[in-house]
Amino acid sequence: MPLLKVEGITKEFFLSSGFLRFVFGNPEKLRAVDHVDFTLDKGGSFGLAGESGCGKTTTGKLVMKLHEPTEGRIMFNDRDITNLAGKELKSYRKKVQMIFQDPYESLNPRLSAFGTIKEGLDALGIAQTKKEKRENVLRALEQVNLDPDDYKDKLPFELSGGECQRLMIGSAIVLNPELIVADEPVSMLDVSIRASILDLIEDVLTPELNLTRLYISHDLSVLKHVVDNVAIMYLGRVVEVGKAVEVLSKPLHPYTKALTSAVPVPDPNYQHEELQIKGSISTTGGERDRCIFEPRCPEAVEVCKRRLPELVDVSKSTENEREVGHQVACHLVGEES
């Protein structure tokens, strides 16, 4: 049963600012997210993967309603939430919470742990007595393994990276959300403690609170072992989507193939395949008349320059409901099946 459905979502940013430029000049647009579709089932986990500039973070912020989409529609629990304001927006915020990348930068340095967790309860006007709020805050601290007596008065700078991130998670779960959007939740933490944070989310909090998770990350190795399904993004478009294990072990799109073979492997004897990809990202995206990956694609053919490839389902079978069919946006792959 889908919790979140993103349909044709597009986000454009204007590059030049200034009133006069806007009126007289031709304002340059950056299409950060380009007609993205994906579905997230209740209780499942989904990963948005790609390199910097691919639009995954912007997509996450669109889901969080921290940005407004230029085009497209977002459905949450079968309700259209694309245009929300006022009370309805606040109600949405209670259900969808975010975990940010840099735990130190993303918390108000002047708020104690207690204040940090309480912030959502206050700002969203949750009807509770002071005592009830206090109990909820202390319970949230416990749920994220921060002993309330030790931690409640601590300020962010007094905490380690991992503790800070747990505090951030606490500030999100205290609101009892249905969906958690985690934007690079562990990339700024030491490798040896990343698993503890991911375990906290996946093994402890998910069953406890029946959470659905949307992960945004550039780290494919982590995504493979954490999420059910993954979408690979390039210049704002989804180029491949499907079960994480399948997409990342047997990638079909040339870009995904390049990405997965470039990931460093902690095995000195491993031989990487030759990376055929050329050059680096140079356009601002938005072309609708050709494949956006074509300039760098080692397998490109004539049709790639002339037509935009759409996502095509190439899966052989879907084993259970929670798995998205394997879809690829590539003329070469689409043609085959």
Binding site: K94, R110, A123
Partner: peptide, 26 residues
């Protein structure tokens, strides 16, 4: 521009709340 302002927004903070509770003290 700092991320904790975005965090405060995601917690449902109104503009005035963010301005006077989060930004002003800093």
């Amino acid at each position: 521009q700092r991320e904790f302002v975005t965090w405060a927004r995601s917690k449902g903070g109104s503009h005035l709340r963010i301005l006077y509770k989060h930004i002003a003290p800093n």
